[in-house]
């Protein structure tokens, strides 16, 4: 069973990951109904607290909460008092005074969600912290892989790009290893450092070194804002050794899945023909995102001991 929070996949067990994925598969059906809403979390308040810009993750969580009938409230660092120097803990204390049930936080610092989870009684869901984890993204990635490949045990997933600074990659590595998949990395030496092998993955260099054996290739977005100066050469050189285009895709296993957490830098890590090609499941990832986030909210919030008076069992 999941605990109070979802901070990452590093400490989750196989049973918990499987439970989330199985539940998410059910929630996909809700989004296909005419009335895409169930009353499950009626009266619960979910706050999205985003200290980094992100349209899609925030929309996805927002929609997930709304489809479960929770009330949602958005808090953006750009429009709030954090610009005036308020600390994260003070912001959280203010939100706490409004009696939320869950906070979905994205923050540029690794460990920021853990700090809130330690200090407050409400549920904390990590929507991306620094270079640490982005568990809901990894879960939707794994759900998408499972849809196409079934059991992921024994499968090989290649992750290509700036793995060192990618919370998406790290959450995927933790989750995929637990489900028994093998993970192999490729990328520039500054972004795909040998110490990553301590996470139980194999570290290679060029994309050609990993494409042949992969059932899935996950292309990461180059995020210059997370790189220290001097950690990357030109985009042209990057694309030459680590980018995925049609010619390279032809050398891969037939049926290989091409994934990307979005937004794509077209022409850098992924050529447009590949991004929109038949091997690409990028749009399925987005659809699954809502289902996974509904499952997380349901599993984390749906069973809390709550109000007196709601003590009748259904028979």
């Amino acid at each position: 069973m999941l605990g109070k929070d979802l901070l990452g996949l590093r400490r989750l067990g196989v049973e918990e990951i499987t439970e989330i994925l199985d539940t998410a598969a059910h929630f996909r059906a809700v989004s296909e109904r005419r009335i895409k809403k169930v009353p499950t979390l009626r009266g619960r308040t979910v706050v999205t607290l985003f200290f980094e810009n992100s349209t899609r993750t925030r929309m996805s969580f927002d929609l997930a909460a709304k489809r479960l009938s929770a009330d949602t409230l958005g808090f953006s660092a750009s429009t709030s008092s954090t610009k005036k120097g308020e600390t994260l803990m003070d912001t959280a204390r203010n939100i706490d005074a409004m009696k939320p049930d869950a906070i979905i936080i994205r923050h540029p610092c690794s460990g920021a969600p853990h700090m809130l989870a330690r200090a407050f009684p409400w549920t904390v869901i990590n929507a991306g912290d620094g270079i640490n984890e982005h568990p809901s993204q990894a879960l939707l990635d794994m759900l998408t892989m499972r849809d196409h490949l079934g059991d992921l045990a024994g499968r090989t997933v290649a992750i290509v790009g700036d793995v060192y600074h990618s919370r998406v990659a790290r959450s995927n590595i933790f989750g995929l290893r637990k489900l028994g998949a093998s993970v192999v990395l490729a990328g520039p030496g500054t972004m795909c450092r040998p110490e990553l092998e301590q996470l139980g993955v194999r570290v290679r260099h060029r994309i050609d070194d990993v494409l042949e054996e992969a059932d899935v290739v996950m292309m990461l977005r180059i995020q210059r804002e997370r790189l220290e100066p001097g950690a990357m050469s030109t985009a042209r050189e990057y694309s030459r050794f680590y980018g995925l285009d049609l010619a390279r895709l032809r050398q891969a296993r037939p049926g290989i899945l091409v994934m990307h957490p979005g937004p794509i830098n077209r022409g850098v890590e992924l050529s447009p023909e590949v991004a929109d090609g038949s091997q690409s499941v990028i749009m399925e990832q987005v659809t699954n995102g809502v289902a996974v986030r509904m499952a997380l909210l349901y599993l984390l919030l749906g069973g809390d001991p709550l109000p007196a008076g709601a003590d009748h069992a259904v028979a």
Partner: peptide
Amino acid sequence: TLYRDDLYTGLEKPTLGV
């Protein structure tokens, strides 16, 4: 399951059906 009025009563969370 998603329409139940006792999800918050601390009972074990029921598995979702179809």
